[in-house]
Nucleic acid binder design. Structure first.
Lengths: 183, 183
DNA sequence: GTCTATACTCTGATAGAC
DNA sequence: GTCTATCAGAGTATAGAC
């Protein structure tokens, strides 16, 4: 299994992603990461200056990945249909990549608010909203929609609602929300 | 300042709460906690079996505290007014006690879903919803409302929306949601 | 019920040889 | 670009004296 034995930023990133998804952020430590790559921990620092840089790159990856999932789901649909499809893709992504998704809305150091990959995601939400309300740059509505999506994703993960509850609550909430926005 | 120099579960809890609110869950460690109480770390284990027990107690405290804040805000109001007031109290609580609030929806070990203080909070949300929709035990609507509240609290904390965005988004979202529920 | 002392495991990170 | 070796520190928890 051991490859030509050289590291690249991508092979490291891929291994880091696996560790993150399997055991959460605390499991993504430099030593286990090095073990998994068949390498000594210090070697990693040639490719990423520190652990924070690695996490930052993963965060970017998550933003892009989630955005891609929503875009793909909305492709070929318009208005309510596009919004519904993208919303489903959102919670489905959060469900299937819980820890990666968890990086996205972690509190940031003030002033470091990301100008990066999250922007595209935000613009996408704005576009979906516009397709329903016909109001461009309706940030209030976009904030509200995102809040609902994120909140649902977290509640779903927390497992506080037994088994059946969440899913139908999602349909009901999303529909009510859209109806309320457009009336 | 040093008192009769004896620990109680409550003095420990109070100091733990301070550490938690000041520096987040990672700052709540046994050693700093003991320092703050003028005591050796090992002494703490006479009162709490381990750190997890301490966190669990704090979690209960958070649930009760948040519930109290919502109840007080809703007292003397009915229907939409009660719901709006409690909703505001919710996000305000999350804003002023971010780390304590953060304990509430942390993922739990499956099967350990809390039968504890969170139940009262849930029932309160159900009552608020019933006051608006006149439907008892409308769990779908309650899940949707809670999702929106929680999601907004997190987005607000994440600071990804500049400064002005979130607040008006909250009003818009809450009103739309209620309108959608009742139409 | 608090103390001293300590065991143990884990972390991120660096210097310098090869 | 990877290695060995190591630093400097964090953490939870326990045994046994007082």
């Amino acid at each position: 299994m051991p490859y030509p034995a050289k590291l690249t930023t991508d092979t490291i990133l891929s291994a880091a992603l696996t560790l993150l998804e399997q055991g959460g952020p605390d499991a993504l430590a430099m030593r286990p990461l090095a073990d998994r790559l068949g390498v000594r921990p210090s070697s990693l620092y040639r490719h990423y200056p520190d652990r924070a840089a690695l996490l930052g790159t993963l965060e970017d990856h998550a933003a892009r990945d989630l955005h891609a999932a929503m875009s793909q789901a909305a492709t070929g649909r318009r208005g309510h249909e596009a919004l519904h499809a993208a919303a489903h893709a959102y919670v489905e992504y959060a469900r299937s990549h819980p820890h990666l998704y968890g990086l996205l809305l972690a509190p940031r150091a003030p002033g470091l608010a990301g100008p990066g990959a999250g922007k595209d995601l935000w613009n996408h939400v704005l576009t979906l909203i516009e397709g329903v309300t016909h109001t461009p740059d309706d940030t209030d509505a976009a904030v509200a929609l995102w809040a609902f999506l994120h909140g649902f994703a977290v509640l779903d993960r927390s497992g506080q609602f037994g088994l059946s509850g969440p899913r139908s609550g999602f349909e009901r909430g999303l529909s009510s929300f859209i109806r309320g926005l457009t009336s």
